[in-house]
Amino acid sequence: MAAQLRELAQNPPQDANERRELHEAARLLYMSLETPFDAMHRLFWSIYQLPATQIGVDMGLFRTLAEDARVEWTLADLSTRLKVDRTLLYRVLRYLASFGLVSESTDGTYHANSTTQWLSTPGAEGGTKHYLKTISPVAHALPETLRQQGYQNPTNHLDTAFQKAHNTEVSAYSWTPSDPTVIPAFLEFMKSQRASQRSWTEKFPLETLRLSQSDLEANRVVFVDVGGASGYQCVSLRQSHPELSGRIVVQDQEPVIARANEAELKKHQIESMAHNFFQPQPIKLAKAYYLRNIMHDWPDAKCVEILRQLRDAMAEDSVILIDENVLPDVGASWKQAQKDMQMISVLAAVERSVSEWHHLLKSAGLKVKKIHTYDEDIGDSVIEAALA
């Protein structure tokens, strides 16, 4: 059986669904075979993976290997190219190769694999720095923070492990790090994440948003992107579904809207508007109010405030489209559970399960019409909500 698994490792399936199912099965197999000694190594020494990756980024190691994945580098040539000590490089490579971040051949040479290629991209480099410098200290501060709070579920975004780790009284979104390279790294990481994500329009039936002739004559707004930053989702919607008639509006706070590309928005017939989503919604009776990754940044009480502002603006046939992770009530994946731990520690917020979404919407005077899942791997879904 071990030989068959090794052969499969050399020739993994190319189909995305099959690969995902096999990956999860292999993970479960690994955990079932793990001894307490193995668990000790996984838990206690895994803290070095992120720092070692940052060393590889700083050395230029991943970019050098990724220039041509077919090239096999000797330790001597790589040491000369990177201008780093040969013994140190050998030890770093040995560690990175043991976790599959680079590939080591039987003759002692090194080359890039798919993970190496990814680590050479600006988005991965930015994510490495963001998680090492911003998130890692927060994760380490979480146990003491929860102990001091008497192990109550965090609900105050100004009293989290983030404030403790970075010695600040402001929220994570208002914080200015002392290292000026951290924020650009975070933005590069977020940009790369958006580029690789699937679109909610793949599964959501957009005919739901079709306006009647009388709606069009009344100049009704079809789509409001609430807290939509630069309007990326609005532009994407116009480009992928040019047949969708009606006004489209992106809203965010004044400093964010001021940075939007007005020429690009105008080109796609998208209006921009400064608005704080905790204040009354100025656009009344829109067909759809869309919120992407807003709710998971806030505890329930704040989410109810946001939703009630939209509820008060809705028509009978209006919907609120909440684009978020939806976790199962039982059996959440490790990817989903990890994201929830980050929300606890950084924002006193939450990645919600199916029943939690139903409870939250009911608290705001709304109901779940349907949940449209468009990425099963992490549970990305559009929750279609209507007036209760």
Rank of each mutant, 00 (worst) to 15 (best):
D15Y: 02
E18T: 14
A26I: 08
A16W: 07
S32D: 02
L22V: 05
R20S: 06
N17M: 06
E21G: 06
D38H: 03
M31Q: 02
R6H: 03
E21P: 00
E34K: 10
P12K: 01
A39C: 14
N11F: 14
Y30M: 13
L43M: 09
L28G: 03
L28K: 08
R42I: 10
E21N: 04
A26R: 04
Q14H: 11
L33R: 10
L22F: 02
L8R: 02
A25H: 07
A9C: 14
M31Y: 15
A39P: 13
L22Y: 08
Q14N: 06
Q4Y: 12
F44D: 12
M31W: 15
A25W: 07
Q4K: 14
L28M: 01
E21W: 04
P13G: 00
R19G: 05
P12I: 00
A9F: 01
N17L: 05
P12A: 03
D15E: 15
F37S: 05
F44P: 01
R27G: 11
F44E: 15
R20A: 03
D15P: 00
R19P: 12
D38R: 03
E7Q: 13
M31N: 09
R20K: 09
A25T: 15
L29V: 09
R42G: 06
R27K: 06
L5N: 10
A39K: 08
E21K: 11
M40R: 10
L28T: 09
A25Q: 14
D15L: 12
E18S: 14
A9S: 14
N11V: 04
P12L: 02
R20P: 02
N11M: 00
R20C: 12
F44T: 12
S32T: 01
S32R: 13
H41E: 13
M40F: 15
R20T: 05
A39L: 12
A39G: 05
H41M: 04
R27S: 13
M31E: 14
R42Q: 11
L22M: 01
L8M: 10
L33M: 14
T35W: 12
M40I: 15
M31F: 15
L43H: 12
E18D: 11
N11D: 11
E34G: 10
Y30H: 05
F37Q: 12
L29P: 06
A16L: 08
H23D: 12
R6Y: 13
P36Y: 00
M40Q: 08
L29T: 05
A39Y: 08
L28R: 13
P12V: 02
E24H: 13
F44K: 07
R27W: 09
R27I: 13
H23K: 06
Q14V: 15
D15R: 04
A39D: 08
Q4E: 07
L5M: 04
Q14R: 14
D38K: 06
H23C: 02
E21A: 13
H23R: 01
E21F: 05
R19F: 02
P13Q: 00
R6D: 09
L8I: 11
A16G: 04
S32Y: 04
P12Y: 14
